[in-house]
Amino acid sequence: MITSIHVTLAQVAATLVLVAIAAAVSYWQKAGLEGDIAVAVARSFIQLSAIGYVIKLIFVVVLLAAMVTFGAFTANSRAKKVPNAFWPLFIALALAATVTVSLVVALGIFDATPRFLVPVGGMVIGNSMTAAAVALNRLGDEVESGARQIEATLALGATSTEAAAPIVRKSLRSGMITLIDSTKTTGVVFFPGTMVGSLLAGASPTDAVRLQLILLWVLLGSVALAGLVAISLAYRNFFTPAHQLREPPEP
């Protein structure tokens, strides 16, 4: 049974011999189809090549979108005290995945193929999900325990953004601190999996280290972005448009 097919461009080109025979028959029989055959060959090559890339891209996009959706649902279940947290989380994870995956492709670090995009995207979404969930969980706790402080600040004529600023900062720190600490201790306390895996697979230590650095920094950026976006969108759900706390402190 054929389990996979690998076709080289030379093999594809070789089949043009049959097309040449068809064109020759047309010419011999004066059928006048040589031009149409040439156009058909050119168009089929261009169109099928394009659809091949589209299929690859759609596969990656669909898979990453599924990861983002699942990640947002999972993080949402950890942020029960934050009203309507799903969409802030979905937008945060989608943005983090899009920006970081686009960046590594644009810089030529990885090819735009599922082999690279799916695992890198998965790492980015997974770490962003954890950080955003921790940050929003902390945000919910801080708003609950700090409701008096928030309302006292609102009572001074502060906007909801100004009143929430201290807890937004604390929550963002909570979301990022784990990854920052593991990044700080990389190579001393903590040997990350990508580097170990690359070394075991026979990569040179230099290449393994460089790949690991790229992934660490990409993750750091994506986690910061996801945490910032999730919190910046989610904290607004605690307030009305008139800068009132939806759940004021107990009297």
Partner: peptide, 13 residues
Amino acid sequence: DPLELRCEVGLVP
């Protein structure tokens, strides 16, 4: 405007 009102009518909790 609630923000202007809160500056004019201050509240001490």
